[in-house]
Design a protein around this nucleic acid. Sequence first.
RNA 1: GGAGGAGUGGCUGAGUGGCCGAAAGCGGCGGUCUUGAAAACCGUUGUACCUUCGCGGUACCGUGGGUUCGAAUCCUACCUCCUCCGCCA
Length: 425
Amino acid sequence: MLDIKFIRENTEAVEKGVKDRGLKLDLKKLLSLDAEKRKFITEVEDMKSKKNTASQEIGKLLREKKDASKLKAEMKASSQKVKEIDTKVGDINDTLQKMLLEIPNIPDSSVPVGPDGRSNKVVRKWGKPRKFNFNTKNHIELAEELDIIDFGRAAKISGAGFALYKGLGARLERALINFMLDIHTKKHGYKEVFPPFLVNRKSMTGTGQLPKLEEDMYRLKDDDLFLIPTAEVPVTNMHRDETIDEADLPIYYTAYTACFRREAGSYGKDTRGLVRVHQFDKVELVKFVKPETSSDELEKLLKDAEAVIQLLNIPYRVAVLSTGDMSFAASKCYDIEIWAPGTDAWLEVSSCSNFTDFQARRANIKYRPKDSKKAAYIHTLNGSGVALARLVVAIIENYQEKDGSITIPEPLRPYMDSMDAIRFV
RNA sequence: GGAGGAGUGGCUGAGUGGCCGAAAGCGGCGGUCUUGAAAACCGUUGUACCUUCGCGGUACCGUGGGUUCGAAUCCUACCUCCUCCGCCA
């Protein structure tokens, strides 16, 4: 959410930001509603002030056993009028609030301007794709042959777009989760948390998934709860409606959670295999930082995510997303894409974003700067470190051998009883 | 799921219709004293909004609605927490 005051004073900058994202928005209506609201507030507060004085007067008269019925009658009428205007202000405010929740964050000036993903800019590449001296298979063939992922039974249990990991497949999943959490907690200084996977509407609104993306969420209607699409939601909302001590900043959290996405509207795309599934595991990184440090913190966050893939020795590239491709709440975002030779594609395994004060304002997360009396909004950031399903695709496909076995990357072996490969049994 | 109790400022906690944005204590900040610190003493200390920006005004005592000239205080619905019983991984 943007500050209404900021919009009032920087209307052009906001309009440009919205336009660069390829969206249309009528700020005129917003601003005229805002002006109208303030006019009514001024009016009604003046009436309230008079009312308060009169009420005290009535109290005084009654204590002196004098007649107050005339004043009472006047105040009754005034009270009615106040209620009417208050209702009007409330209605305007609701509309205003709804409009504000639909305005995206303003892109950082370093973000390339463009309508969609084609304007994204690759900022670096790491690793060299392996040269195979045999015909590579994709992860679906490999995993099914080794019987470590069972897509057929997953479909029977749940439907299309789910995976059932079995044996060393399940073990690999668990190993990766532990491996990544260990790196982030022991080497990068993140605190591990394990949050609820179901969250309420307020949390979903706080991080910006609602109100715009309700269609993309799994929702429990009876309880108005949502299955989390990412750990970003519960973890960022940990500090909703809180003022954090400046001395405690920055705060780094890492969390493993399952993630649930309906992927509505993407039917027909990547329908087979692990590339696009309704449920996947992810280790997430979330930061709460002072505003002046957030752009450096984004670079560090990105490096922390990259470290995981480097240790696993899988080629990847990093792209800075263009204005049109960035998510609603982000001011700047990097994607990490890993190379999957069997699928013959670069797969997005991490989005690292700086949300500046956009989420903090929605979720009301503040800190008190030392030299200022007023509390200020903190900046939030997050990124995957990294998403499992696609990482598993990349591991299976990059580490496949001619005989159909899969070599286990060196750093994962301590988590897998020192096994060096997944072979046929 | 059943029965009872409770939600007040950073914390503890008083307040059952006007004199309450709210006692008192603790904590924080500033000062006196001191070589320095502690103790003691004095002062100060919530947030947001409106504003003709005036040390003016409004709102906020879990949340929403209601009663009243007037609500932290009464009524009502909901949320959360605690205790006991039941059920349960």
